[in-house]
């Protein structure tokens, strides 16, 4: 029972923290993107446009909730909620400091991969339930992409699992705190595995350059085409949550999570997470979208074989006692 209370308390705290970070993340993204294009970004609402995310959210919530006449009402309403739940659920097992963790699951990595894989269902429900050709095409692309990129993602995540010999994320972080960060040493399976993880994570959260599922120029807005108001807000939020939680996961698995000198663990974890978050937006506003076939070729002919090789290398590293 004690554990239940602990989980509920910390879960609420972490979820609130993530959602507030996202509000500021939206502001940061708009500002950062503006500067990259030598624009100013938001300036009007609040000092330096700081209140812009709130204006955005209020605007979105005010909008009329439109449901297409021939939509599958149940699926259509369920999809955005499920999307947020699935993307927030991953955060449950990520340790933000030695003690701040909602649920220290023994099989944390499996939980992350499983819940991450569940994202397919809201995508499908939205695409199918909208009864719109663009939404359905977007859903098909998104599912194809997330199934394909699930493979390199699992392979990349398995590298720290094999190196540390633990399936629990807090165990992996503790191991790194004791020895070394995986992105730094052993550099050969570690750093490339991180790169593959990063790319696969971008693909799973449909970020540029992997945003084929919602390619504006061809699919209007993919699965969110028919969504308005609060439901659209939920999808929008789920995407940002996915990105932020993915960054936290990357920081925990490859950069030692809360491990760092001079400062409390939480500070380090937040710093690392936000660094990866910024990196994602840097990539997003710099690169072009892949074509669908390039996307699949990158996944199946590059990332997957390299991932298998990295897994073998890390197994060999452990077997021949490279750890100590």
């Amino acid at each position: 029972m004690n554990e239940l209370v602990h989980g509920a308390l910390y879960g609420t705290l972490i979820a609130t923290a993530i959602l507030s970070t996202i509000a500021m993340g939206i502001w940061f993204e708009r500002k950062f993107a503006g500067r990259m294009q030598q624009r100013l970004g938001p300036t009007i609402v609040g000092p330096a446009g700081l209140l812009q995310p709130f204006a955005d959210i209020i605007k979105l919530l005010q909008k009329e909730d439109i449901v297409p006449r021939d939509a599958d009402r149940g699926l259509f309403d369920l999809a955005p909620i499920l999307a947020v739940v699935c993307s927030l659920g991953v955060a449950a097992v990520i340790p933000f400091s030695p003690s701040i963790i909602a649920s220290d699951l023994d099989v944390g990595v499996l939980w992350v991969l499983g819940i991450g894989g569940l994202m397919v269902i809201p995508t499908f429900a939205a695409g199918w339930g909208s009864n719109n050709k663009f939404a359905l095409l977007g859903a098909m692309r998104a599912i194809a992409q997330s199934v394909s990129y699930g493979v390199p993602l699992v392979l990349a995540v398995l590298v720290p699992v094999v190196l540390s010999g633990s399936l629990s994320i807090s165990g992996i972080v503790a191991w790194q705190a004791q020895h070394h960060w995986f992105a730094v040493w052993p550099i050969v399976p570690g750093l490339p595995a991180f790169v593959i993880f990063f790319l696969a994570m971008l693909a799973e959260s449909n970020r540029i350059p992997f945003d084929i599922p919602e390619a504006e120029s061809e699919l209007v807005a993919g699965i969110t085409t028919e969504y308005t108001g609060a439901k659209f807000t939920l999808f929008y939020m789920a995407e940002y949550v996915h990105t932020l939680v993915g960054s936290a996961l990357g920081a925990a698995l490859f950069f030692g999570g809360w491990d760092g000198p001079f400062a409390p663990g939480l500070h380090w974890m937040v710093l690392k997470t936000l660094t990866l978050f910024v990196l994602i937006y840097w990539v997003r506003w710099s690169l072009l979208r892949f074509r669908a076939d390039q996307l699949m070729r990158l996944c199946w002919t590059w990332l997957t074989p390299i991932g298998v090789a990295l897994l073998l290398v890390s197994a060999a590293w452990v077997t021949f006692g490279g750890t100590n």
Partner: peptide
């Protein structure tokens, strides 16, 4: 059996379900 639960979600929902839907 948390390992079994994780594998169940990963394989059956992430794999079988997805393939069914596709």
């Amino acid at each position: 059996a948390s390992f079994l639960a994780g594998v169940q979600v990963l394989l059956y929902i992430g794999g079988v379900m997805t393939l069914t839907l596709v």
